[in-house]
Computed example of a mutant assay.
Amino acid sequence: MDQKIIARINWVPTEQGGKKRFPLIEYSTAAQFLVDEVGQGWSVVLKIVSNHDNYETICDFSFLFPDRAPKRLLFVGSKFELYESKKVADGEIIEC
C-alpha cells in the first residue's frame, strides 16, 4: 500500500482507564474497524505527526502487514478502536 493515510486518534483519558503515557513518536497495537466483522483485529502502526491536546493525536496510519491489509477499510470517515488488553483509543481515517 503506497497511499498516505492520516488518522485522528482520541485517547481514552487516564482517569477513565486509558493509558498512563501516550506515545510520542511511534505506536503499534491492535485495531478493530467498526465496519469490519466483530472480532476481526488488525495490527497497525501509527507514526505521530502532531498532538493537538493531551487526548487527540494526528498520525500517519499503516498496517503492520500491508500485503494482507483490507483496502476496503481505508476510506475517509472509517472508524476504528485501538486495543491493548482493553480499549485505549478511538480512531478515524481523515485523509487517504
Rank of each mutant, 00 (worst) to 15 (best):
Q32R: 08
F22I: 12
K87Y: 00
S62P: 15
I93R: 14
I48A: 07
N10K: 11
M1I: 14
T14V: 04
L46H: 05
K86M: 04
D2C: 00
S62E: 15
G17V: 11
N51T: 12
L73Y: 05
M1N: 15
K19E: 07
N10Q: 08
D2A: 08
K86S: 06
N54S: 10
V45L: 03
Q3V: 06
C59Q: 07
Y27F: 14
I25N: 11
E26I: 14
A69E: 15
K71V: 09
S43F: 07
E26F: 00
W11N: 06
D60S: 09
E84Y: 05
D53F: 11
C59D: 12
D2W: 00
H52N: 13
K79P: 05
T29L: 01
L46Y: 00
S78P: 13
K47Q: 13
L73W: 11
F33G: 02
A89W: 01
W11K: 06
K19H: 08
S50P: 11
V88R: 03
G39C: 04
G39A: 13
D67L: 00
T14R: 08
G18Q: 13
E37L: 00
F22H: 10
D53W: 14
N54I: 14
C96H: 09
S28K: 06
V38H: 11
I48R: 01
I25H: 06
N51R: 12
R72D: 13
Y55G: 03
R21F: 10
D67H: 00
C59A: 06
I94P: 08
V45S: 01
L34E: 15
G77T: 02
F80V: 00
S62T: 13
R21L: 10
L46D: 03
I94M: 06
Y55D: 07
S62Q: 15
F80P: 04
K87H: 01
K71R: 06
R8L: 07
G18D: 09
V35W: 12
T57E: 07
V38I: 07
E92F: 00
G91V: 00
C59N: 12
P66Q: 14
Y55A: 05
F61Y: 10
W42H: 12
E26A: 08
A30T: 08
L34M: 09
E37C: 12
R72Q: 14
E56K: 11
L34H: 08
K86W: 08
E84K: 06
D90G: 02
G91C: 03
E92K: 01
M1K: 15
L34W: 00
D60C: 05
I94E: 10
S43H: 13
R21T: 12
I9A: 02
I94T: 10
L24W: 11
D36W: 02
R68K: 14
S78W: 04
F33W: 10
Q16M: 11
A31G: 04
Y27Q: 06
C96K: 07
R8S: 15
L64G: 03
K86I: 05
I58P: 06
E84G: 03
